[in-house]
Design a protein around this nucleic acid. Structure first.
Lengths: 336, 336
DNA sequence: ATAGGTTGTCGAAGCGCTTCGATAGCGACC
DNA sequence: GGTCGCTATCGAAGCGCTTCGACAACCTAT
C-alpha cells in the first residue's frame, strides 16, 4: 500500500502538505498542489480509512439500520436503502448496513466504537426501544418513520395522516359514501408501526368531516387472506364502493377478486392504493394511488444527517406531502 | 470515549494485557482476565474501530455491492443483502453497502483504502467489468451470480441450468409437449446477466432430450406487457399447455389473463414459476415453483468469504441445487 | 525602510490500538 | 541448587493519518 509519506517524498514536500492538499484545510500554492496531485496519480495513492478515522475521529460512515423482517414493503425498503447509499456517497460518506436483529446493542456498538459518525433508522416503531439510546448519545441520527414522541429527534417520513385524508377526499369527491380500508397485516398494527395508524387516523377524521363511513380491516397479503377479508367487508357493509389499500401484496388479489365477483373497476367500485409507483403502474388495472416516495425519503434522511454533521440546524420533523395520481382505478359513483 | 489505556489503569494492568484479553492471542491468568473484563463492563468500553483497523490492518468489514437498478428481483436482492449482513455479524464482520453506481471505481476505492477486508458482488454480468480488478487484487471476494469466466474467482449461485431442466422435466412428466417460457425483461438479456440465459439453456437442452417444443419470450413486467406477450405466444403456438415464468412481476398478470381467457390452471394449462417462495405462496393460484434461495445464497457467500479470510481453501464455484415444490398450478395434461 | 499581516510549508505530537521482544516468576528435572 | 522451559505480564514501537504551532518568505501600508 502506498502511504501519505511516500506521496510526500515523491512530490518533494512534507506529509502535512500532502494532507492539506487532500483536505483543503489550508491554502496551498498552485504549483505544489499540482505536483502532489500528480504524485498521487502516479503512485495510485488511496488514503487509509482506518488511519484517517483514528486521527480525525471521523469515519465518514453512516450506519443504516434496516428492519430484519421482510414481511412488508420490501421494495420500498430497498429503494430507501439504495437512495441512502447513493446520496451518502455524494456527500462523501459510505453506508454501513445493520439489520434490526441486534436491536439496541447495534446502536451501542456502532456509537461506542466510532465505526460510524451517524445513523439512520428505518421502520421505527411508535415506542421504539432504540430511541432512549439515541437521545443519550451525541451521535447524530435521523429516523425514517415517526415515533410517538419526536422530541430531541429528527425524523423524515411521508405525511401518512395527510395521505389518508387525501384518499378519502378523492373518493368523496367522486361521490362515494362507504369506504373500506384494506390495511397491513395485523402484526404490523400490533407492533405499533406508526405509519399504518397515522394513515387510518387521517383518513377517519377527514371522513368524519365529509360524512363518509369507514370500515377498516387489516389483511395479510395474498389471495386467500384477501378473499376472506373482502367477503367480511361486503358482508358487513354491502354498500361499500370505495377501497383504500395500504398493503402491496393485497392489491392484485383484490383486483382479481373484484373482477371475479363481477364488480367493475372503476365503474362499480373505486380503488386507491398507497404504494410505490411501480406497483400502481404495473397492476392489472392502472391504479389511482398515493406514491410512497422511497427515494425522496432516503435522500432527505441523508441530507438531514449531513446537515447535522456539518453543525447546521435541521428541522425536527420532515413530513413529505403526499401526492395522489389519478389513474384508471377510480371514477365517479354512477350506479347510486 | 473510554480507551484501552483507561481500562488498563482501572484494572491495574498494562494496555497490552487488556488487548490480549480481548483478542485471546496470548494466555492470560483467570484472575487477570476477570479483573479486566469487569473493568470493561464497568467503564462501558468499546474498542475504537479506526485504531484497530490501523494497528491490525483489518477492518472487519465486508463490502457488499448491490445493483443500483431496481427493475428486477428486488425482494431477492433485499433478502440476500439481509442474509449477508446477518451472517457477517455472526462471524464478527460488519457490512458496507455499495451501490453499483460507482462501478469499478468503488472496488478500487474500497480495496485501496482498506475500508473493507473483502467484498461480495451481486448481480454479476457474464463479462463484468469489475472482474479484472478483482483478479488483480489480493483482497478476497465472492460473486453472487456466475460470470462467463470463473477462473480465479469464487462464485455462489443457484444452479439455473438445472433449474430450467427441472421445470421442463416436471412438465414433461405431466404430459405437456409444448412449453412457453416467459422470461425477464429484454434489457436483462441484453446486459447479459447470466442466470436468465443459463436457465434457458438448461431448459432447452433438457427439452430437446425429452422431445418438447420450447418457445421463449422475454417480457417486461406488468399486465399490459404480459397480455401482449401471451397473445403472441398463443398466436405462434396455439398448442402451448406449459408455462415457465421467470419474472416475478409477470406471474400474477399471467394468471389473471389465463383466467380471463377461460383457460383453467392447472386443468388446461400448467404454470411453473422460478421465484421466491413468498411469491409462489401468495399468488392467486398457489404456484408450483422452483424457489430462489436468497438467504442461502447470501449465507453461503459470506461463509466462503470468511473461509478465504481465514486462509482456508474454498470451492471455486458453489452451485445450489434447485428444488421444485409442487403446488396447485401444475397438473397432468388431460384434454389431450 | 520598517512594522504588521498574509500565505505556504514544515515538523512533531498524538489518535487508540496491536504486536513483538523482553523479562520476571515458578515449578520441574537431573 | 542450578538450569531449563513454561506462563503471564509489561514496555515500547509503530500503524498512517490529521492538526497545531512555528516560521520563513513575501506583500502592503505607513
Amino acid at each position: 500500500m502506498v502511504t501519505l509519506a511516500e506521496v510526500a517524498q515523491h512530490a518533494g514536500v512534507s506529509a502535512s502538505t500532502v494532507s492539506y492538499v487532500l483536505s483543503g484545510k489550508r491554502s496551498i500554492s498552485a504549483g505544489t498542489r499540482q505536483r502532489v496531485e500528480r504524485s498521487i496519480q502516479e503512485l495510485g495513492y488511496h488514503p487509509n480509512a482506518g488511519a484517517r478515522a483514528l486521527a480525525s475521529s471521523k469515519s465518514n460512515i453512516i450506519a443504516l439500520m434496516v428492519p430484519l423482517r421482510t414481511d412488508m414493503y420490501v421494495p420500498v425498503m430497498m429503494e430507501i436503502a439504495i437512495a441512502v447509499a447513493t446520496t451518502a456517497r455524494i456527500h462523501g460518506y459510505d453506508v454501513l448496513l445493520l439489520t434490526g436483529e441486534e436491536g439496541p446493542d447495534a446502536v451501542r456498538r456502532v456509537t461506542g466504537s466510532g465505526l460510524a459518525d451517524a445513523m439512520i433508522l428505518m421502520d421505527v416503531e411508535l415506542d421504539d426501544e432504540r430511541l432512549p439510546l439515541l437521545r443519550d448519545t451525541d451521535q447524530p441520527s435521523v429516523l425514517i418513520g415517526l415515533p410517538a414522541d419526536t422530541s430531541g429527534l429528527t425524523c423524515v417520513d411521508l405525511d401518512f395522516g395527510a395521505t389518508g385524508a387525501l384518499c378519502v377526499e378523492h373518493l368523496a369527491m367522486l361521490g362515494h359514501r362507504e369506504v373500506a380500508v384494506i390495511g397491513e397485516a395485523p402484526a404490523v398494527y400490533e407492533r405499533h408501526t406508526g405509519f399504518a395508524e397515522r394513515t387510518l387516523d387521517g383518513l377517519r377524521s377527514r371522513a368524519r368531516e365529509l360524512g363518509l363511513r369507514v370500515l377498516h380491516r387489516p389483511c395479510e397479503g395474498g389471495y386467500d387472506a384477501m378473499a376472506a377479508t373482502l367477503a367480511r367487508i361486503f358482508d358487513e357493509r354491502p354498500g361499500t364502493t370505495g377501497f383504500v389499500v395500504q398493503n402491496e401484496s393485497a392489491v392484485e388479489p383484490l383486483l382479481a377478486l373484484l373482477r371475479q365477483q363481477g364488480r367493475a373497476v372503476p365503474e362499480d367500485v373505486s380503488v386507491i392504493a398507497v404504494c410505490p409507483e411501480q406497483v400502481a403502474v404495473q397492476a392489472s388495472v392502472r391504479l389511482t394511488s398515493v406514491a410512497i416516495p422511497a427515494q425522496e425519503m432516503g435522500r432527505r434522511a441523508v441530507e438531514q444527517l449531513v446537515a447535522k454533521l456539518d453543525g447546521r440546524e435541521t428541522d425536527e420533523v420532515v413530513l413529505l406531502a403526499p401526492e395522489l395520481t389519478v389513474r384508471a382505478s377510480t371514477g365517479p359513483l354512477t350506479g347510486g
